[in-house]
Design a protein around this nucleic acid. Structure first.
Lengths: 158, 158
DNA sequence: CACATCTGATTGACACGTCAATCATGCACC
DNA sequence: GGTGCATGATTGACGTGTCAATCAGATGTG
C-alpha cells in the first residue's frame, strides 16, 4: 500500500508519457488544422468564430460585454482586446448600454452575420471530417467518458 | 448509399458537437492548468520547458538552431523569437557555429540546466495527477488508439 | 448629499505565434 | 574565381493572450 501511494505520486513511465504526448500534440494539431482551414475559407480566427457564434444566437444579435464574455468563456480583458480588433474589421459594433452607462453592448453587424454564415458550414464539415469521421461510434462514446473523467479531475482548483 | 455519403458530409449532430466541444475544451483546460502550475513552480513557460528539455538531452547540452527546431517541432522563426527571450533571462546562450558560419548553436547555461531540473519533477508529477491518474489503464489504452486514429486522419495535408 | 466602495469595462505592457521579407554564408557551375 | 541560387537564421509587423492598473459610472451608508 505504501508502495501504491508512492508509485502513484512518481513520474509517469515512458509508456504513459508517450500516450500523454500523443494526446496533447494531437489535440493541438487538430486545433491548428481547423484554425487554418477556417482562416483560408473565411478569413476568421477561431476567436472571431466563437464571438460571432455567440452573437448570432443572442436575442437581437447583441449582448452585454460581460454576457458575451461568459458565453465564450473568456476573461473580460481578452474579450475587450478581441472586440476592438473585430470592430476594426466591422464584424461587430459597440453600442453604449442604455440601462447602465458603464456597460457596453456588442452588436453583430450585417457583415459579421454574413461572415459567420459562410464560415459555419465548412467549419462544421471540417469538424466532422477531422474528428467525428475519424472515430468509430464506440470511440466517440469513449471520448466522452474520458473527457468527463479529465474534467472532473481538473475542476477542483489547483 | 447516396444517403450514407451525404450524411457523412453533413454537419455534426448536437450529440457529436457536444463530444467535440468537450474534447477540445478539456484538452485546452488541461494545457492551461499545466502551464499555470509550471509557471507558479518554476517561472517557466511550456515553450521554455520544451527548449530546456531538448537541450538537456543533447550532446554537450548544445544544438544547432535547426536541430533544436526539429526537436521541439517548431518553425525556425518561432524558435528564433523564443530563443531571444530566453537568452535575455540567461536560460540559454547563443554561440557562433564553428563549422558553418551561417549557423548558430544554442547552448544550455548552468542556470538553465538548474531551472529545468527543478521544474521537471513537479511538472511530471502534475502530468500524472491531472492526466494519467484521472484515467483507468484501459482508458489510457483507448486514448492511445484514438489519438492514433485522429493523427492518421490529420497527416494527409488538408 | 458626500464619501467610500463595488463593478463593468478598457488600457498598457509584455509574452507568444505566424507570415513574409531579409541577410549572410555556403556551394555549384560556368 | 565570379555569378547565382540554396540554405540557416533573424527581423518586423501584426494578431493573440495574460496580468495588473486604471477609469467611469453605480450603489450603499453616514
Amino acid at each position: 500500500m505504501t508502495d501504491d501511494t508512492q508509485r502513484t505520486r512518481q513520474s509517469p513511465t515512458a509508456d504513459e508519457l508517450r500516450i500523454w504526448r500523443g494526446f496533447i500534440e494531437t489535440a493541438q494539431a487538430l486545433n491548428a488544422r481547423l484554425a487554418s482551414r477556417l482562416h483560408e475559407e473565411s478569413a476568421l480566427s477561431p476567436g472571431d468564430y466563437s464571438v460571432l457564434l455567440a452573437l448570432s444566437e443572442a436575442d437581437g444579435r447583441r449582448l452585454r460585454s460581460s454576457e458575451l464574455a461568459d458565453a465564450v468563456g473568456w476573461e473580460r480583458s481578452r474579450l475587450s482586446h478581441h472586440i476592438r480588433r473585430m470592430e476594426g474589421r466591422e464584424l461587430i459594433r459597440r453600442d453604449d448600454c442604455a440601462v447602465d452607462y458603464r456597460g457596453a453592448e456588442v452588436v453583430l453587424t450585417d457583415h459579421g452575420a454574413q461572415a459567420f454564415r459562410s464560415a459555419s458550414v465548412p467549419h462544421l464539415r471540417a469538424v466532422r471530417e477531422l474528428f467525428i469521421d475519424a472515430l468509430s461510434p464506440g470511440q466517440l462514446d469513449e471520448v466522452e467518458r474520458f473527457t468527463a473523467a479529465l474534467s472532473a479531475r481538473l475542476t477542483p482548483k489547483n
